[in-house]
Every structure is written in C-alpha cells, then in structure tokens.
Amino acid sequence: MDNVCEEQQYNTIFKTNSKTVFNYIYYKFGNEEKANDAVQEAFVKLWENCNKVTPDKAKSYLFTVANNLYLNVIKAEKVRLKHADKHRNESTNESPEFLLEEQQFKEKLENALDALPQNQRTTFLLNRIDGKKYAEIAELEGVSVKAIEKRMHLALKSLRDKIDGI
C-alpha cells in the first residue's frame, strides 16, 4: 500500500506538497511560470520514479528535482515578487494617513525582500508565509536547522537595514 505508484498515495503527496513547491520556486525566482513548470516537472519525475522513491522520501525528492531544474538559471536575474493583497478592510477606524503609511511601508518591505539573497528570501518567506518550521525547511534545502536559523536572522536583519535605508 505504501507505494508512490499507488494513485491514492500519489494524489495525497500532490495535495500536500504541490503548493509548497510552487511557492518555493516562486520565492526563489519571482516567476509564476517557472514555479508552475517546476511543479509539473517535479511531479512527473516523481511519477516516473515512483518505484524507487518511498513515500517518506517523496517530499525531499520533489524539492531536489524542482531545485535542480533551475540550477543553471542566472542568479543575477532581478527578482520581482508580486504579492496578492490580503489587506483586510474590516477595521474602519484607520485614518487615510495611516493607510498611506502602511502602503508605503509595504512597498519598502517588498523591495527589501526582492533584494535579499535567494536562499534567505526563500527560507524567510517559507517560514513567514507558509508557516513552515525551521526543521522542515532545513530538510527541503538539505542543510542544518542552524543554517536555517542563520538565514532567518540575517534576512530579518537586512530587511530592517534596507527599510531604514542604512
């Protein structure tokens, strides 16, 4: 039963991981098309090798494939992340000045995020937006938890430096 070739199992793996693969590649390159392609590529490869990959290894296999797919993409390519506006309009007691300030801050933050090194940005957003635990990110990236903490720390620090214009 515990076989990735089983349709049920494969489908479960897809439901659990496809969005994270998408986000992971998106945070890296800021490119939706690449992210969508990576999902396809990773899962097709997983299907082709479903006999060799056990279910518990499937996740790290997916991320390795997705990662390798763009190994040769020029790192210097400028990243421009687009974020859906999740700003809630429930509270009515926000002054226009406050809203403007918020908007400006958000823009600054987005610029700072775009300017982060690729691995810091990916790690930071996987944690903050997707709520992935450090240990989980460490597993995906194939590095230690300590290294992930370092990235988180440096990412937050550079964000503040950047926003403050230091």
Partner: peptide, 27 residues
C-alpha cells in the same frame, strides 16, 4: 518596533494564487 512591524507586514503577504486543480489536470 521596526522588527515587529516587518514581521506583521510580512505575515500579511501572500504569493500569487496556485491553481492546484489546474496543475493536477495538467500533470
């Protein structure tokens, strides 16, 4: 205060919509 604000603002961000159903069909 700055760190707190960055944290709060980041947590409100979200990546573009991922259409899982479409991706599954395509796959």
């Amino acid at each position: 205060a700055q760190y707190q604000k960055i944290k709060e603002t980041t947590d409100k961000l979200s990546p573009p919509e991922f259409n899982m159903e479409q991706a599954w069909l395509q796959l």
